[in-house]
Nucleic acid binder design. Structure first.
Lengths: 248, 248
DNA sequence: TTATATAATATTGGTTAACTTTTAAAGAAC
DNA sequence: GTTCTTTAAAAGTTAACCAATATTATATAA
């Protein structure tokens, strides 16, 4: 059997949620391969230190995700088909900070090249659209209103300028999941200066704009990498502070 | 509150499954609208005649589907189930050369950063796996056999070494669509030296291997970019030659 | 010895009941 | 009217139990 080591779940967002994420991570990491039998409920109970109900609910969620299947009297098995029909990320994944960071890494890899392509291929109209989106966001911020949708629109405008519709489709998909998750972050960050943060983000946007406007693909790459890299850093800090709070 | 009438579930395929389907049907039928609060566990127990655990597991599954969300002390609410979208590329798209080029561009953007991360984060075991995949492909080629699956495995091994499961999921999805499309290309290229082409590809793979082995992320980026960039070039040439043939 | 029935065991499925934590709402105090 | 306190309702969690099912070991018969 595959070796495995579940983190002893701690209270934060519900035991079931924690266990779901822990198990899903193990499966996705490959510690349980397709067709493998998961440890029995009893063993998972002991390893994770939770009750049977929690384990059963966690398994129920993974079943609904199509990641595992169970047979009475036998065990729970990792599904074979996993993900060849579509690329899909569940809502719960978007809302977990740890997963959100990894999703951001994927998103960053796409947007970096997307921005470089936009710098090379953009039309004047597309450039105007990008600029407008940036200004829209600036207005919202100066009025103290929520600017998440405008931020999203800015990135979509760059996707359009890349001339490759698959970039746009990818951003559409990833972004729609990121939006609700981001509200959590924004709420968290209100504590230590959300205005200042928005000013930083806006300056990053301006730099991206300039790079694409001057058709400098290397600068576009660098500025988008910096922009999303900073976002990843902020998420990491939140994750760390959560861990510290838990250990108290 | 919305009116509802759950069928009294009977044993057939599992009580939980029955209840999940019953509740999902009610929601999809519109008997519970977006934002509505579902009846409490207790009431569902009574109406459907099952125990609390079954109700809770059913709710857990619906949560995983993104159809509902629960708040402790308040209730379970129907979500704006728009999140059931997914990133999907049809078979026809994969098989069109023009789209295949654009899909390759998306794939390249992901693999470039994925390779850079793999170079930094890889374990020795993961490196060994990458090397093995490369050697497997080499063997297949020298024996004159098809090596598409081994090529795919090589890229997946790098995805695993990146430590980010979303890279692996993305490559799994994109790659599974690319495989059938690639047969077409290979067949086409048989005309002007498939052996020579495979030797080139293999040399590119060796270079990627070396970059990740020496943990040089910049070199990894460059070598993967070259590798997939060349693939894009070949596709472009085929596209052009098709166009020329059509114009004749 | 080999084939088959039987019993023991392990595992998921399901029930029940009690307890904990969170939330919202109703009152009480100011 | 505002703020604090109490209280009830709801989801979250635990524990102990029984039922159904599949595997495995064991005993029995040919």
């Amino acid at each position: 059997m595959a070796t495995f080591q579940l983190a002893r779940v701690q209270k934060s967002g519900g035991l079931t949620t924690e266990l779901v994420e822990s198990l899903r991570a193990e499966i996705l990491k490959g510690n349980f391969k397709t067709g493998d039998k998961l440890p029995s409920s009893k063993i998972i109970e002991q390893q994770s230190g939770v009750s049977r109900s929690v384990v059963r609910e966690a398994i129920a969620q993974l079943k609904a995700e199509g990641l595992v299947d169970s047979k009475q009297g036998v065990g729970v098995f990792v599904t074979s088909k996993k993900n060849t029909q579509s690329f899909q990320i569940t809502k719960a994944e978007f809302e977990s900070i740890h997963n959100a960071i990894q999703i951001l890494e994927l998103r960053m890899s796409v947007e970096v090249e997307m921005g470089a392509m936009a710098a090379v291929k953009r039309s004047d109209d597309q450039m105007q659209n990008i600029t407008n989106c940036m200004l829209n966001m600036e207005n919202k911020i100066s009025q103290g209103e929520d600017s998440i949708a405008e931020d999203f629109a800015f990135h979509k405008a760059i996707a359009d300028a890349s001339g490759n519709p698959y970039f746009r489709r990818f951003i559409d998909y990833i972004g729609s999941g990121v939006i609700p998750a981001r509200e959590m972050i924004t709420n968290y960050e209100n504590g230590f200066g959300s205005d200042k943060l928005l000013a930083v983000i806006q300056e990053e946007h301006r730099q991206i704009c300039r790079a694409i406007e001057s058709q400098d693909s290397d600068l576009a790459r660098a500025s988008i990498k910096a922009h999303l890299g900073n976002s990843i850093k902020r998420h990491s800090q939140i994750e760390e502070s959560f861990n510290i709070n838990q250990e108290q």
